[in-house]
Amino acid sequence: MSGTLLLQQAINGLTLGAVYTLIALSFSLVMGILGILNLAIAELFMIGGYVGFTLIIAGAPLPVALLAGMLAAAALSLVIEKIGYEPLRNAPLITPMLSTLGFSIILQNLATNLWGSDPLQLPGDMLATRIALGEVSIGAMQLLVIGAAIVMVAALAFVIRYTTLGRALRAVAENRDVARLLGVRADRILLIAFLLSGLLAGAAGVLISLHYAAITPYIGVETGLKAIAVMVVGGVTRTWGALLAGPLIGLAEVATVAYGGSQIRDFVVYGLMILILLVRPQGLLGGARSDQGPRV
């Protein structure tokens, strides 16, 4: 393979990785606070994608489509918190997780009924501008995907690190009981975490469907769940870990397809996840649940 093609693959890998990072952060927001894997996030990503994609086809401007996809996923995320988590808050962790599994299957079924199981495609000339960079070219859409992902990750990192809301999120994540005794409304903070998680998943869905110029109801399972691997590789609650692991998995995936064939793609991605779990269970940058404080 020529150097040019390699660089082109690298750009594709980074684009995919940027989207993985967004979904991984969506998973880790809920995981960091509740310790549960919200499996429905993969389908929020898919639904957000469909909403944005449908609007683009209908001729809506891109920012509107992106925002609509984000809000739709965020609204569903809040419904999942209210029905799937809140009533089960005192149950063992597996219980709400099973509930999110139920939600994910329902959402996939809903999408199949609303939009059909065949892929929706963008008309060929839409959003297909390419910008030449010497011998390689980068699609305007790829730039948008990478740019939007960077902006959102930076915004999330800023909110978590520096703001009142972020401090409350971290306090609740580390020790919900102590946070409550300090006057933090933990139930509201949980809702906000689900809201942010939904916004990220929805954005990722719109971006990936535009990147592929196509969407199917199975994109959640095919692409969304891979973000769990990204989250594990990066370290469950580390924002910067996901920023590193997303592109890493994206590049590994693209390289596998280019050199090994697409039939072993998932083998490599999930194999990498299992390997990391074996040799470094806390993830590349650490940050698994070990730093969770004891309850009162």
């Binding site: 306090a171 020790n175 004891p294």
Partner: peptide
């Protein structure tokens, strides 16, 4: 038993 936040 002191309950401080490790991330802060």
């Amino acid at each position: 038993n002191i309950r401080l936040f490790s991330s802060m």
